[in-house]
Every structure is written in structure tokens, then in C-alpha cells.
């Protein structure tokens, strides 16, 4: 996903002179091509995420679309108030980019486990969450964000993720993206956001006669809630999956969206990380299994 991100960003920056990349002294081996091609639009803010985010908002107020880039919780929780007040409240075109969403940096310990980030961003009223499921969804999300500049959070995995689409899909906030399986009404859906799309697809491919289809929702947030009921109502059951804690995550977002429609919440089963994973250290796969979202 990292490579797709920087490749797509460079292509978009060639067309759009307002795109700027501000990194928090991270991105070795990833961001250099952007820095070399656009030195006037690349800034290493140093290990100082509050200033990184504040200055990104200041630049955005003068017309830039600024991407702040760091890993795990550094560009998000460390500067949460700058994101809330400077970016979201002023409705500025800053996209916070976190590499290592979920438990991608599992061996690096709790400081590097981004498993509460949806909770932070989904409670900001103007914020659009972009959690692509594969490298092609990364490109799709980036294209959407550049065409529709707004406060946003782009959650990336790491590197080497498989692709599950044949081409870059069309993405719309709140609209589920069909990835595999049946399309008819009344189907069961395994609905993923972010990098758990690989787990969902592994389950689908491992099943000889899958009785569910796989959907991805790469763009969502507070404003996209009203679109959910109609899509839930078209299904018999919706099983959400995410590499984030249950609390304040994607599944609970969908449950809240459905809660105003009697009967719909009962169709939703939430699969998310349990709290046992907090503080545990290991590979991403091992931690996902410990957290309860492994293969079935």
C-alpha cells in the first residue's frame, strides 16, 4: 500500500500543483521520489507532530492540499487536538496518512499498534476516513480525496499487500464496494474496511461453496451514516470485519447507523479485535488471531 500511495500521489502531484507532502521524519525508502521531484512541496517537519499538523492546516488555509505522513499513532493521537481544532473544525484540506494501520507493526509493541484510530477520526464531524483494502483501493481513495479535498484520514497497511480488484475501482463515501461473491438481494455479506479485506478474501477463497459475498467499504465517516440503512436492508446478514478494537470501531459505526431502523441492527455481527490484544506483541498474523479476527 505504501508504494501504491507514493506512486499515485506523485502522479496526481504532476497534475495538481497544490499537493504537498509533510512527513514527520519517517518514510525512508518511500517518500524520496516525491521529495526529489517536488522539492518545493515536500517538507520534513521533524519529530514534531503537533507542529506538523498545525503547519499543514496553515498551508491548507492558503490553498494547499497537504498530506501529513507518519506511522501508526504518531500523525493521529499525538496531535489529536490539532486535527480536531485546526483541520476538522476549519474544514481544511489536510489528509492525515498513517502507515501501519491495525497491527502491521505488531512486533514493535503497543506504541505502534494503530487499533483505536477509527475511534478518533470517526467522531470528527467533517472527517472522511479512507481505509483501503488493497493497493488498488489506495489509488482509488487518493483520486477521490484529491478531487474532493476535505479533512481526511488515510489508513494504510504496510507493503506487499495483494490486490483484489482487476482495476482501480470507483469509490464513493459510504457505498459498499463489491469484491467477490453474489450480488443479489438477501445475500450474506462479509463487509471489511482497511487491510482486513485480505482476511475476508482468504475466507471466501477457502470456502468451496461460499454462502456470502465480500464487500469493502474504503470511504466512510460520520457524514456517510445515512447511506447505510438501505444497503443493510438489502442483505440478510452483514458480518463486519476490521483490525481495530470493537469499541468505537467500524462495526460499532455501522451499528449506530442502523440503530434508528428497528430490526436492522439484528442483521449485523461485528468482528473486531478484542482487548486481549492490547499490550501483546507478535507478528500481525499472530496478533490478529489472538484478537479474534483470524481465518475461519
Amino acid at each position: 500500500m505504501r508504494d501504491a500511495f507514493i506512486d499515485e500521489l506523485i502522479q496526481l502531484a504532476r497534475i495538481n500543483p497544490q499537493i504537498a507532502l509533510v512527513v514527520g521524519d519517517l518514510g525512508y525508502g518511500v517518500v524520496e521520489p516525491f521529495a526529489e521531484e517536488f522539492p518545493d512541496r515536500f517538507i520534513n517537519a521533524g519529530v514534531a507532530e503537533q507542529n506538523m499538523t498545525g503547519l499543514a492546516a496553515g498551508m491548507a488555509s492558503e490553498g494547499y492540499h497537504v498530506f501529513t505522513y507518519s506511522i501508526a499513532n504518531f500523525p493521529s493521537f499525538r496531535c489529536a487536538e490539532q486535527i480536531r481544532n485546526d483541520v476538522d473544525y476549519h474544514n481544511l484540506s489536510v489528509t492525515v496518512v498513517a502507515v501501519g494501520g491495525g497491527l502491521a507493526y505488531g512486533a514493535l509493541g503497543y506504541s505502534h499498534h494503530a487499533i483505536q484510530d477509527y475511534g478518533l477520526f470517526r467522531c470528527l464531524p467533517n472527517m472522511l476516513i479512507a481505509a483501503p483494502g488493497d493497493p488498488l483501493e489506495v489509488r482509488a481513495c487518493l483520486r477521490y480525496l484529491i478531487e474532493n479535498p476535505q479533512p481526511s484520514y488515510l489508513r494504510l497497511g504496510k507493503a506487499g499487500e495483494r490486490s483484489f480488484h482487476e482495476k482501480v475501482p470507483d469509490v464513493v463515501p459510504g457505498k459498499w464496494l463489491h469484491v467477490a461473491g453474489a450480488l443479489e438481494s438477501g445475500r450474506n455479506v462479509l463487509l471489511s474496511t482497511g487491510a482486513t479485506l485480505a482476511i475476508a478474501m482468504d475466507r471466501w477463497q477457502a470456502s468451496t461453496d461460499p454462502d456470502f459475498s465480500v464487500n469493502s467499504l474504503p470511504l466512510w465517516g460520520m457524514a456517510a451514516k445515512p447511506m447505510q440503512n438501505e444497503q443493510i436492508a438489502d442483505c440478510s446478514a452483514v458480518n463486519t470485519i476490521e483490525d481495530h478494537l470493537y469499541d468505537c470501531g467500524f462495526g460499532s459505526w455501522l451499528l449506530e447507523a442502523a440503530s434508528c431502523h428497528s430490526g436492522l441492527t439484528g442483521r449485523i455481527i461485528v468482528e473486531a479485535l478484542n482487548r486481549e490484544v492490547c499490550g501483546s506483541v507478535g507478528s500481525q498474523n499472530a496478533l490478529n488471531i489472538l484478537g479474534g479476527i483470524g481465518p475461519k
Binding site: 498545525g54 496553515g58 498551508m59
Partner: peptide, 21 residues
């Protein structure tokens, strides 16, 4: 130009404006 209230936000935001200029 900018709403504040929580302290420590103005200078980083101003740095961004100055850098943009």
C-alpha cells in the same frame, strides 16, 4: 483568519501560512 481557544495552536498554524507564502 483562525479560531483558537486551546493554547499553543496559533504559532504552528502561522508557520504553515508563512511557509505557504
Amino acid at each position: 483568519e483562525f479560531s483558537t481557544g486551546s493554547l499553543g495552536h496559533g504559532l504552528p498554524f502561522g508557520v504553515g501560512k508563512a511557509l505557504a507564502a
